[in-house]
């Protein structure tokens, strides 16, 4: 019988990194992804669960120099409501507000959302638009060792990341977006609520005199990992948002994604809605 035999709740990051050790234990935050799997018996329950929520440093939103830092245990509902994030984190706050439902948003953490590494993770694409980095910590000879990984390099496949055994995600960092930028993000599902995205797309634009100076495009649920849209960005760079440009951008988007067919939607349909959503965002931006 696989049962959880031990529940640990370290109070410091150092203690946590030591406990995590070889990575056999489950790192537990909101439990909104692990819980259903355990309850349905689809994964072996770990012998040891390490709850990371008692560690103060992993909570909350703060400014660190030029960067905004979001602790790994910050809840979706906190991100959704945070005034600084609503102002300077582009699509992140609204995307957090579209996760599942209030009960889940009150438990799900940004660290968990990223470490589960679902291609459909709702916060991943907004973080791609921010050029965000995640911070990983592990135990070293002289205490906690930290390293940073760009969000685009963090995901390595469905359910997998570059996080090594013994590493924990401590926070997400990014530079706040200047007022001269605009962000849009949307996810597509059969229902308006309680949906795991069939496809999601976001775009960040910095325009001057009607010309795109800088663009970021990201996609969710249309590849093994959340994906940055390099080709779409290239089609945007230095351009005015004319109908022809938008058509070329959406074509590039449909081209550079790699969706699958599953019980939720077909690959071709996912391509279509990515194009439609992105086209509508760019049309809105052109009209603004």
């Amino acid at each position: 019988m696989t049962v959880i035999q031990e529940y640990l709740a370290p109070r410091t990051l150092e203690e946590l990194t030591r406990l995590v050790g070889d990575g056999e234990a489950a790192i537990y935050a909101g439990g909104t992804d692990l819980g259903p799997r355990w309850n349905k018996d689809v994964v072996e329950k770990p012998a040891t669960v390490i709850d990371v929520k008692a560690i103060a440093e992993l909570h909350g939103v703060r400014v660190d120099g030029e960067e905004v830092v979001i602790g790994a245990c910050t809840l979706m509902s906190q991100i959704e409501a945070d005034p600084m994030l609503r102002k300077s984190a582009g699509a992140l706050a609204p995307a957090a507000g579209r996760v599942a439902c209030p009960q889940i948003r009150n438990r799900a953490t940004i660290g968990g959302n990223l470490c589960n590494a679902s291609p459909a993770a709702d916060t991943a694409v907004p973080l791609i638009l921010l050029d965000a980095e995640v911070e990983l910590a592990s135990v070293g000879d002289d205490g906690v060792v930290r390293r940073r990984v760009p969000i685009t390099e963090f995901f390595t496949g469905p359910g997998s990341t570059c996080r090594k055994p013994g590493e924990v995600l401590t926070c997400v960092r990014f530079k706040p977006l200047p007022d001269t930028t605009s962000c849009a993000w949307d996810k597509f599902g059969t229902r308006p609520a309680m949906e795991i995205a069939v496809a999601s797309v976001g775009v960040m634009l910095e325009q001057a005199d009607g010309v795109v100076k800088r663009a970021r495009v990201g996609y969710g649920s249309v590849a093994p990992t959340p994906l940055r849209g390099h080709k779409a960005e290239a089609e945007l760079a230095g351009k005015r948002l004319t109908a022809e440009v938008i058509e070329r951008v959406t074509a590039a988007a449909r081209d550079e994604i790699n969706p699958i067919s599953d019980v939720r939607a077909g690959a071709e349909y996912r391509r279509t809605v990515i194009g439609v959503m992105l086209g509508r965002m760019l049309n809105d931006a052109a009209g603004a």
């Binding site: 291609p119 469905p158 795991i196 649920s221 067919s261 599953d262 019980v263 939720r264 077909g266």
Partner: peptide, 12 residues
């Protein structure tokens, strides 16, 4: 015809 019946287990 390119759309239509979806299949397989979700991977999200």
């Amino acid at each position: 015809e390119t759309y239509g019946e979806t299949c397989g287990q979700p991977h999200g």
